[in-house]
Design a protein around this nucleic acid. Structure first.
Lengths: 232, 232
DNA sequence: CTAAGTTAAATTGTCGACAATTCTCTGGTT
DNA sequence: AACCAGAGAATTGTCGACAATTTAACTTAG
């Protein structure tokens, strides 16, 4: 899985390593969302000093996984429906623009690589129970490559550096295995086609529709759940 | 000047105060862009310990004003033309979306307040040498209010918390007093009109054109300067 | 004179202790 | 019984010192 972030420089210092461990733990819910973080307790747990832990907390704050208030402490960010929808709105805007830029700035080799990647996903999806795979890793991988293809460092930083892990957290904790996999695949195909045609306007439009469709799908689910609860 | 960020919580701790001072110093170029930051030196300069200074540096890193490499140190971010254009691309996407959301989520009172604010700007602009004023503060103020009007916390965080100070830095250091002030005023008026009409699609379109126009204006200037240099 | 290797200085990362603030629990008053 | 006040405990912010790493300066071989 070539899901490696060029922005992401490998962890050399101990604070980095603890940061990565905590990041994973938060994404997977092992450190539960919304809970308060006790510096002394976690420092003891990870066998490090409080200063080092605070350094790690600062990096978690940078990717919006924890929030801190002065003289009060840090809390893990909460997973709310509103928060999830807000992220989709931001992604629609930013990934749409990234797609437009990718149509301008991606090299022919990059495009070819993405096309072959999509074919691989298609076969492995058809082969076995690939729906989950596709939805989990393949989808992120696709979006990732488009973002990198924009060659816009600001876009890459915001989307891959900050929002990426928040998205992963929501996927993990809300269990996003929606039945949109096959439709998503078609949408991905058309997006790559537009990029290959160097049609930035269409590429942006398609990507925005693609993400908006996911958001509306979630909104629909929520609405259904609310009706269910109201009528019982 | 009601340019207060609700995101921005006032500085209570000393690290916060140093952070704000350094932020201002970087924006104004008193700490020169691209220069390396010496922790011991700055700690002595601000009369604080290195730990506190590092805390401040972490916050500067959060709003992308400094960059840090492990075991090497921190550098003030550089102001490059490419970086400026990248920011405009991100702003076009995000503020466009913020504008669309503002058309949905702003209250009638908020809209009325923005309309009166714009009229004030108009009169004070016509009154005296308001062009600079409008361009410097008024423009930021307008964009600020639209962003807040989106009521999307993610959008607000990214635009007001992170990009805002970078934009200020570029304005200050590149001396953006372009002659687009009067045209910008008309564009602002139309944007508010669209928001008042609750026409999110149009509001987004107009905001994107507004920002794209600024970007193209800069690109044109750069091109002219390059030709000048080439022919002399 | 250049280039590589080695040593010394400087800088960054980490630690434990102290100060300042906040939270909690107890006791008293209306 | 509810609410406010105050002392104690716990937590966060800040400090100075030490360890690890990088940068520089110097020496020496080619």
């Amino acid at each position: 899985m070539a899901l490696i972030n060029p922005t992401h420089q490998e962890a050399v210092t101990t604070a980095d390593k603890v940061f990565e461990k905590m990041q994973q733990a938060i994404v997977e819910g092992k450190i539960i969302a919304g809970s308060k973080i006790s510096e002394p307790e976690l420092a003891k747990q990870y066998q490090i000093s409080r200063s080092t832990l605070r350094e790690a907390l600062n990096r978690l704050e940078k990717c919006h996984l924890v929030e801190r208030k002065a003289n009060v402490g840090s809390r893990v960010v909460e997973c709310t429906i509103e928060g999830l929808l807000e992220i989709y709105v931001v992604r629609e805007a930013l990934e749409g623009m990234a797609c437009r830029q990718a149509a301008i700035n991606m090299t022919d080799e990059d495009i070819l690589e993405m096309q072959t990647m999509l074919k691989q996903h298609a076969s492995s999806q058809a082969l076995q129970d690939g729906v989950a795979y596709y939805q989990e890793e393949g989808d992120l991988d696709f979006h990732y490559k488009v973002i990198l293809g924009s060659h816009n460092q600001q876009l890459i930083n915001i989307l891959c550096g900050q929002l990426y892990h928040l998205v992963r957290m929501y996927r993990f904790q809300f269990g996003m295995n929606s039945p949109r996999a096959s439709r998503a695949f078609d949408e991905h195909s058309r997006i790559i086609e537009a990029i290959a045609d160097r049609d930035g306007e269409l590429a942006e439009l398609l990507m925005r529709r693609h993400i908006a469709a996911s958001r509306k799908n979630i909104e629909k689910k929520i609405a259904e759940k609310n009706i269910q609860q109201a009528t019982k």
